[in-house]
Write a protein that binds this DNA or RNA. Structure first.
Lengths: 342, 342
DNA sequence: TTGAAAGCGCTAACAC
DNA sequence: GTGTTAGCGCTTTCAA
């Protein structure tokens, strides 16, 4: 497609390049006759404008840079779908970069994207505190949207933000467990990003709201299956074992399930279980697994919307929106059983 | 970052723009003294070259267009990770477009990406037969890699291809079921893309290899949970009910599992079950679900490699590589039980 | 070895 | 209403 330039079209139509440009960009100063001539030449030659050259002139690439930690994480993939779909409708293209969960790559990807002259940035950062990321964010000249991240207050980065209300979801889940009679709730956390902090805070607030002494057990480690196994084992082997376990991230659930299976513990009888983030099959376990869920697609859409808004109105100040979260209880949560007395 | 141009650097260093360009592009005709002067100016100004302008001159954007049906499909997301990671290492950026499983969008995305002057195309097409896609593919001027798609032989599209050996995987799975004594194997298929055709062929070949009359039951419909439920029900309600069910795609498994649960049928006892494509939790069901698996990450890597190779050597003819597939049997496959005689 | 200048394909003054 | 022309930031002949 397109090796023909606007000059070829002009020549073919017997008019000036500027006239071709005017017709194609829908400028009003173009007579019907001119329109016809130009469009005929365009059709005959199969001319398609070169976006690169347009970008160069207009100083706008109509492209957005998206930095993610790991696109193969289903949650991120859904966010990406929401964002790309939304941007597409506004004629923006998405440049995707994976940081492979390495904080150093966040900053270098941002720099690369700026070099590519993206009009805006959508960031699902791997780290909220890495100095080089914070430093480059201080001087990006384009609108930025942070996805579920909060940077340390000291740096004043001009960015819109889409926040997820993890705290409420966790509060609801833990409250439910407390109401069932659990007192020793275990929470497994990987990472120390905002979602982990909020989830821990949600758990605390559930205890606090019921004026119960906080007898929870929070274990934090790498965001992987191996750690989830270890943590689950630790929670069950504790002198005061947890009677309910909350998996603080989708990547952890397999580890917890496998440790429970190894011990032949039945979910919803010997142990109560809640998972953060719905996955395709959680609902099909027997019993179905309680989840704290959110719409990742919506997160992507809202992020893109926030960005588009600032692209249209550059003077507009950054905004923050919060996406709700929902706790879906199932029989995987039951009153603490006799196992506790063993 | 970067509002300074190469002219500013030249001025600052008191040299010509061409000299700056030479130094920065590592041209050998540049004296050490010149190098020093230029680099000093670059550092002082924090100059970063504008990739857009470079692309325009060099007629290469160092970017690859990736068309996918649905990035939120975990399989696609993993392929994307493999591809992006590989391209990144060769300093290519990835432009991602979602076709939302609408065949018409494939072609328009390809056109858009060509307008953006991508150096190459990675395609996970929504349709292998849509005319406008085939037509635009006939005149793309850049290297193309098809990911697990085969276009009708009539169109001679110059493209490298990464194929997945679905057929072998399915043959192994069905052979295993036949060896267990099953004769009536049900296969649920969504879509009619290559993977579905190959899976059906694999099933046929398993029967053929054992010289058994093909008593399989293949149902094809939309690639969603609802259809999987319907198809599962149909297979079980048939006059000669299936004793084993193979889910032909990850999106179908939830439907089959839910229909089985509704009927209180126990996997691995009342019915045997195999799923195509490993998912995070398949292994944690009780019993674990047999899967036909492959490395999606590898598919992405191989696709990118094939593209990079043609980018480096434009004269090189397109190649085809095949990625292996593995059947992982579990107790979800068992001999047909008494249920059959009911 | 370095500099001056042309030009990639396009848009937008500006002049007619 | 239309044409001429000057760049956008860069690379690359070509001359010096």
């Amino acid at each position: 497609v397109s090796q023909t330039s606007i000059r070829d079209v002009a020549e073919r139509a017997g008019v000036a390049v500027s006239s071709v440009s005017r017709v194609l960009s829908g400028h009003r100063d173009a007579s019907p006759a001119m329109r016809r001539k130009v469009m005929a030449a365009v059709d005959e030659l199969g001319y398609v404008p070169d976006i690169l050259a347009q970008s160069m002139r207009l100083r706008s690439t109509k492209s957005i840079g998206f930095v993610v930690g790991d696109i193969s994480n289903p949650l991120i993939a859904e966010i990406t779908l929401g964002a790309e779909t939304t941007l597409q409708h506004s004629h923006y293209s998405l440049l995707l970069t994976n940081s492979e969960d390495q904080p150093e790559l966040d900053a270098s990807h941002i720099r690369l994207l700026l070099q590519r002259r993206v009009d805006g940035l959508l960031l699902s950062l791997t780290s909220e505190t890495h100095p080089s990321t914070l430093s480059v964010l201080g001087e990006v000249g384009v609108p930025v949207v942070l996805i579920d991240r909060e940077l340390p207050g000291t740096v004043e980065v001009q960015a819109s933000t889409v926040l997820v209300d993890h705290k409420s979801g966790m509060r609801d889940a833990v409250s439910h467990l407390l109401d069932l009679g659990h007192r020793r709730v275990g929470l497994i956390l990987g990472s120390s990003l905002r979602f982990a902090r909020e989830r821990e805070a949600g758990l605390q607030s559930a205890y606090a709201a019921r004026k119960l002494q906080n007898a929870s057990m929070v274990l934090c480690g790498p965001l992987d299956r191996g750690f989830a196994e270890t943590a689950t084992a630790a929670m069950l082997d504790d002198a005061d074992p947890a009677t309910a376990i909350v998996c603080g991230a989708n990547q952890l659930l397999p580890g917890t399930l496998s440790e429970l299976r190894r011990r032949k513990m039945r979910v919803g009888r010997d142990i109560s279980l809640v998972s953060c983030d719905e996955q395709p099959l959680t609902e099909l376990f027997d019993p179905p697994i309680s989840v704290i869920r959110k719409s990742n697609f919506e997160i992507g859409v809202r992020s893109a919307d926030l960005l588009l808004r600032r692209l249209k109105e550059p003077e507009r100040p950054p905004e923050t929106v919060t996406v709700p979260v929902e706790f879906v209880p199932t029989e995987s949560c039951a009153p603490p059983g006799p196992a506790r007395n063993s």
